Computed example of a mutant assay.
Amino acid sequence: MIAADLTTTFVDTRTPAALSAAEAAVSRRSVRAYRDVPVTDDEVRRLLELTGRAPSAHNLQPWRFVVVREQQQKNQLSAAAFNQKQVASAPVVIAMYADMEDTLASLHEVVHPGLPPEKRDATIEGLRTRFGRMTLEARGQWANAQANIALGYLLLIARSEGLDTSPMLGFDPEAVKAQLGVPAHATITALIALGRGAEDGFVSHRHTVDRVASFR
């Protein structure tokens, strides 16, 4: 059992204007037009730091991000994303991808440093053995499922912080990888346009709880 003093505490530094998780969930929409207002590096770093709090099996955190601001690169990404206008027009585009091979090569970074050395070594060896039995493709699928959990966090946190997003799955993944230097074995989870909306976006339409859940 890990001692209590190994637990780290996250300090909540939200501004008073920040939305609650419930408010962000209800009000978030996909926004495809953005105001010409910069998103600062500090805002992006805070967003990615909070996104990194997403649950991750074995704490492996296989998600990675490329933050794109430069207009020429955004234009090229837009072409790779079938000319979706928000890619070229948003202040920031984040390419989110899953890289299980990088994760396995750096397990010492994700196994808790407070564990006794013998426990750390055993945990690392166990993870290498488990995932080493899987094919490259299966590892990639597993990592991408984990990255999608973090994607949900990113979208919700962005809204709570006063930022709008448009997550996209419509793109040529090989073109995106080539442009951004993402490893060939990685999986592009999503492209996310990020900024402050110049439109409200579509009003969301969702199933009721009774349609999707049963209580037993």
Rank of each mutant, 00 (worst) to 15 (best):
M1G: 15
I2Y: 03
A3S: 15
A3R: 14
D5A: 10
T7Y: 05
T8Q: 10
T8D: 06
T9W: 04
T9S: 08
T9E: 13
V11E: 11
R14I: 01
T15Y: 02
P16A: 14
P16S: 12
A17F: 01
A18E: 13
A21E: 03
A21D: 04
E23I: 07
V26M: 07
S27L: 12
R28C: 08
V31N: 05
R35M: 09
D36C: 02
P38R: 10
P38Q: 09
V39F: 13
T40Y: 09
D41C: 02
D42V: 13
R45G: 02
R46Q: 15
R46M: 11
L47I: 08
T51D: 06
T51M: 08
R53Q: 13
A54T: 03
L60Y: 03
L60S: 04
P62G: 00
W63I: 01
V66P: 02
V66N: 03
R69H: 09
R69I: 08
R69Q: 04
E70Y: 04
N75M: 07
L77W: 10
L77A: 08
L77R: 09
A81S: 14
F82Q: 09
A88F: 01
S89R: 04
P91C: 09
V92P: 05
I94Y: 03
I94M: 02
A95Y: 01
M96G: 02
Y97I: 04
E101Q: 15
E101T: 14
S106D: 13
L107D: 00
L107K: 00
H108S: 12
E109H: 11
V111W: 02
H112D: 15
H112W: 06
H112I: 05
G114C: 10
P116S: 11
P116E: 15
E118K: 06
E118L: 06
R120C: 03
D121G: 00
T123G: 00
I124T: 06
I124V: 15
G126V: 00
R130G: 00
R133K: 15
M134H: 05
T135Q: 05
E137F: 00
E137C: 00
A138D: 15
Q141R: 13
Q141K: 09
W142F: 12
N144D: 15
A147V: 02
N148K: 11
L151Y: 07
L154V: 09
L155I: 13
L156P: 05
L156A: 10
I157H: 06
E161P: 01
L163R: 12
D164N: 14
D164M: 07
S166W: 10
P167V: 12
P167T: 10
M168K: 11
L169E: 11
G170K: 01
F171W: 05
D172R: 05
D172Y: 01
E174I: 05
V176Y: 04
V176K: 03
K177F: 03
A178H: 07
Q179I: 08
A184N: 06
H185M: 02
I188S: 04
I188W: 03
T189C: 06
L191R: 10
A193T: 14
R196I: 14
G197W: 06
A198W: 06
E199M: 09
F202K: 13
V203D: 11
H205C: 02
H207N: 08
H207C: 02
T208C: 02
V209A: 13
D210T: 14
R211D: 15
R211T: 12
V212C: 06
V212T: 14
R216T: 08
